[in-house]
């Protein structure tokens, strides 16, 4: 196994991390603002992939399917937050279980609408080629994933750090009660963040659909991995989500290559240890 092999592994790990960033950043924001452990986040990811498939089947446009799926899932998220989650208030356990109940409902709905077959989202031909960098053949689609995640990350950072809305969101993450006290409408912030989180998960579902596929059960496969991203980075922190996504993406790829028998163990054991030692994650604030 030469340097070539490792470079490819690292590249793959980073591109997988890029996808995980899309799923994890939304989950992290939702947790940070609303203290909700959203077990339906994997469903958002899966539904994003399915909606994109339907849009592609109807219009033939992959480009159109990305915003359509992300917006569709965001609307679903708003509905879930407004109609149901708000009713159970700040009770953590009820929130968690309610999102779990919806995850089951979404699972069945997806099965009814799109069937149980393994499906794949085909990106445009331009993205299916490879580029050669320093003797390495890099699939262009993975390069695209990294670029997209970087762009989204930058955009999120600008919104969070440079706008009034972002300041309100950060204030709510730090101390929701104080934020309410200074006149921030935290209910509105909650729905915005939940919609944003769902949007990012739906987006991840479309992008990941060409890479992981779209199939029943993907929702609960991606969910714990997204949690690993959030935990390692620290809940409610954008930079944390980026680092967490990179760590998990790399650990996953290198783990699979180095110790296939322990592939998932090497992912979740550090997560558990980190939680026990520093529950707020590497970058979370106390």
């Amino acid at each position: 196994m030469g340097a070539h092999f490792w470079l490819i592994q690292i590249f793959n790990g980073i591109s997988y991390g890029a996808l995980l960033f899309l799923v994890g950043s939304g989950l992290s924001l939702i947790f940070g603002v609303m203290r909700i452990v959203n077990l339906a986040h994997g469903s958002f990811f899966l539904l994003g992939g399915y909606i994109a498939l339907s849009v592609i089947a109807a219009t033939g446009s992959w480009e159109l399917s990305i915003p359509a799926a992300a917006l569709g899932v965001a609307i679903l998220g708003v509905g879930l937050e407004r109609v149901f989650l708000r009713r159970v208030g700040f009770d953590v356990l009820r929130q968690v279980l309610l999102t779990a109940g919806f995850a089951f409902l979404f699972q069945q709905a997806a099965l009814d609408i799109w069937g149980g077959d393994f499906m794949n989202i085909t990106p445009p031909a331009a993205l299916t080629r490879s580029v050669v960098v320093g003797g390495l053949y890099l699939p262009l689609y993975r390069v695209f994933m990294i670029a997209l995640a970087a762009a989204i990350g930058l955009l999120l950072w600008l919104v969070l750090e440079r706008t009034r809305l972002g300041a309100a969101i950060r204030a709510t993450v730090d101390d929701a009660e104080m934020a309410r006290g200074v006149g921030i409408d935290t209910q509105r912030i909650s729905v915005v963040v939940f919609a944003l989180g769902a949007f990012l998960a739906g987006l991840g579902g479309v992008i990941g659909g060409a890479f992981l596929g779209v199939y029943p059960g993907l929702d609960f496969e991606i969910l714990p991995i997204a949690f690993a991203v959030v935990i390692i980075g620290g809940m409610g922190s954008l930079g944390g989500a980026a680092v967490g996504a990179l760590v998990v993406g790399l650990a996953n790829n290198l783990g699979q290559a180095l110790f296939p028998a322990l592939a998932y163990f090497t992912l979740y054991a550090p997560m558990a240890l980190l939680l026990a030692v520093k529950p707020t994650g590497l970058f979370g604030r106390e």
């Binding site: 452990v37 714990p224 949690f227 690993a228 935990i231 998932y264 163990f265 558990a272 939680l275 026990a276």
Partner: peptide
């Protein structure tokens, strides 16, 4: 979260 991670291990 930590019990989730341990279960996943």
């Amino acid at each position: 979260m930590v019990t989730l991670a341990l279960g996943q291990c």
